[in-house]
Amino acid sequence: MTPTDTVDIRRAPDRAATKISWLDSKHSFSFGGNYDPANTHHGLLLVNNDDKVKPGKGFDTHPHRDMEIVTWVLRGSLVHQDSTGHSGVIYPGLAQRMSAGRGIMHSEKNDSWTLTGDASHAEPVHFVQMWVVPDEAGIKPGYQQMEIDDELMRGKLVTIASGMPEHADDAAISISNKYAALRGARLQPGDTVELPQAPYLHLFVPRGEVVLEGAGALHEGDAVRFTASGGQRITATEPSEILVWEMHASLAAA
């Protein structure tokens, strides 16, 4: 079935939220105890969490299964450890993917004062975590990261993560879904990029303010769900960052 052309703007204040002493998390889709049967996914994207975690705090070791998890840090640093032996620090400009596959345990912590050795410079970590379904269940768990900060500073859309064959040579990291790709850009005022054409697109503005051609201003935390669309221009009105999922299948048809 061919999707109908739609542009569905979701404003930042309308997102569900989880807020506790150390975590301020905004959810674009149903997540945890915030369940809405009418808001479970768009295309192949099931989770788009906009998280801020205080220094010295974070997510203790917990399990995942059959999910491709991409983490993009906007400010601060996040320490990752998992049951396959991978560990590292995720920071702005570092693309990171964890394939949960047939089962993995991991933790994510804001250990900023441990990393710097100076508690006075500890700061919250702000990151976006995105989940897409893999092509097949039960794959071997995996991990990949690649720094692409210099490219993002050039004011153009670059491929952060992809499983699409046509991106085999230009994606920073791979994901196990041949119908999905994540693009990102850092934009200065006046910079313009054009959205790709796809049956399903998800645009998220984690930082700054931009103007979407034909729809107007998008503020920090706003998102847009497109179907049978693309080609619209995005223009920054202040220093901004955008994340765009290009998807050529939906969850129901994947």
Score class of each variant (00 low, 15 high):
residue 92 P to S: 01
residue 234 I to Y: 02
residue 75 R to N: 08
residue 42 H to W: 12
residue 252 A to L: 14
residue 74 L to H: 08
residue 5 D to M: 14
residue 149 D to V: 14
residue 235 T to P: 03
residue 150 D to G: 10
residue 215 A to G: 09
residue 103 G to T: 09
residue 241 E to D: 10
residue 46 L to W: 10
residue 168 A to D: 13
residue 192 T to G: 07
residue 151 E to G: 14
residue 111 D to T: 14
residue 104 I to S: 04
residue 121 H to K: 15
residue 228 A to N: 13
residue 80 H to A: 07
residue 10 R to H: 08
residue 128 V to E: 02
residue 77 S to R: 09
residue 150 D to Y: 12
residue 93 G to P: 04
residue 29 F to M: 06
residue 153 M to L: 15
residue 160 I to E: 02
residue 207 R to N: 11
residue 150 D to S: 15
residue 240 S to E: 05
residue 160 I to T: 08
residue 213 E to M: 07
residue 182 L to D: 00
residue 197 Q to H: 14
residue 67 M to N: 12
residue 65 R to C: 11
residue 222 D to E: 01
residue 92 P to Y: 01
residue 198 A to D: 01
residue 31 F to I: 09
residue 129 Q to Y: 05
residue 107 S to E: 09
residue 120 S to Q: 12
residue 67 M to D: 07
residue 106 H to R: 09
residue 163 G to E: 03
residue 45 L to T: 11
residue 234 I to N: 03
residue 156 K to G: 07
residue 182 L to M: 05
residue 159 T to L: 01
residue 133 V to D: 13
residue 173 I to F: 00
residue 104 I to G: 08
residue 112 S to A: 09
residue 91 Y to P: 08
residue 53 V to E: 04
residue 14 D to F: 11
residue 134 P to H: 07
residue 61 T to K: 15
residue 94 L to Y: 01
residue 194 E to K: 15
residue 145 Q to V: 07
residue 143 Y to R: 05
residue 16 A to P: 13
residue 166 E to Q: 12
residue 55 P to Y: 01
residue 58 G to N: 11
residue 239 P to K: 00
residue 101 G to Y: 06
residue 139 I to K: 10
residue 27 H to Y: 10
residue 171 A to F: 00
residue 220 E to R: 13
residue 164 M to N: 04
residue 154 R to C: 10
residue 194 E to G: 03
residue 196 P to C: 02
residue 235 T to R: 11
residue 226 F to S: 03
residue 32 G to P: 10
residue 112 S to V: 04
residue 198 A to P: 06
residue 29 F to H: 05
residue 249 A to T: 13
residue 110 N to I: 00
residue 12 A to F: 07
residue 197 Q to N: 14
residue 171 A to L: 00
residue 144 Q to K: 09
residue 7 V to T: 12
residue 202 H to T: 09
residue 36 D to A: 06
residue 29 F to K: 03
residue 248 H to M: 10
residue 246 E to T: 00
residue 93 G to I: 03
residue 50 D to K: 02
residue 150 D to A: 15
residue 11 R to K: 15
residue 124 P to D: 09
residue 174 S to L: 08
residue 176 S to F: 12
residue 177 N to G: 06
residue 174 S to I: 02
residue 157 L to W: 00
residue 59 F to Y: 13
residue 100 A to N: 07
residue 253 A to G: 14
residue 179 Y to Q: 15
residue 24 D to L: 09
residue 164 M to S: 06
residue 116 T to I: 06
residue 40 T to C: 09
residue 235 T to G: 04
residue 201 L to I: 04
residue 215 A to D: 13
residue 155 G to I: 07
residue 151 E to C: 09
residue 26 K to A: 06
residue 185 A to G: 08
residue 12 A to Y: 05
residue 85 G to T: 11
residue 219 H to I: 04
residue 134 P to D: 10
residue 234 I to W: 02
